[in-house]
Amino acid sequence: MDHTGHHPGVSADHAGHHGHPVAGASWGTAMKATLHCLLGCAIGEILGMVVGTALGWGNVETMVLAVTLAFLFGYSFTLFSVRRAGLDLKSAVKVALAADTVSIAVMELVDNGIIALTPGAMDAHLSDGLFWSALLGGFAVAFVITTPVNKWMIGRGKGHAVVHAYH
């Protein structure tokens, strides 16, 4: 390795794709990574719920749209961040997929599971407190469950660890 921590002959861009273990990844780093994903998920999911409801769609169609938008917005935050750092689009997409897929998937699984299991939440309207309490409660529980997942992944050079090479 040279003075930058990269192997000689391996570009910083290439090294960043693989991520490197972060010894003793901190809870603070994991919480920031989780909040990053939570923000994208929340924007996408709420937008999907609003659009699906406004179009009069059923629960399944609305949930599919909400989850799709949650992934889209979750990935887009990382994508824009690493693009600003100078990464080409193809490489930036690879970094975003590597950084966020597991985090967003866990978050969406937990959040939507809580909404589905909360009696009446799936049929609640956007103006109902039950809808918002189930959604926000789901996000809170998803944050608590996803943070240790992100800490574990970052400690192994996976997930958001691949983004840190570009900050």
Score class of each variant (00 low, 15 high):
L130K: 15
A54K: 08
A142L: 07
I115C: 04
M107L: 13
W152K: 08
S133C: 11
I104R: 00
T101L: 13
A85Y: 03
A92L: 06
Y75W: 05
D128N: 14
K32A: 10
G16C: 06
P8T: 10
T146F: 05
R83A: 12
G16Y: 02
G137C: 09
A96S: 15
R156G: 10
A124H: 12
L79Y: 05
D123P: 06
D111A: 15
A54Q: 15
V10D: 13
T53E: 07
A124Q: 12
I145C: 11
M49D: 09
T118K: 06
T147M: 10
D88T: 15
T62D: 03
S91D: 11
G58Q: 11
H7M: 10
H6Y: 12
T118P: 06
V22Y: 00
A134Y: 01
A105H: 08
H6F: 13
V82G: 03
C37T: 02
M107E: 01
I154Q: 01
S133E: 13
I104K: 00
S127H: 05
C41N: 01
V141T: 12
G120H: 14
L72W: 03
S91K: 05
A165F: 04
A116D: 12
K90W: 10
T146Y: 02
L89H: 13
L109Y: 03
I154Y: 01
H3G: 10
G129Q: 14
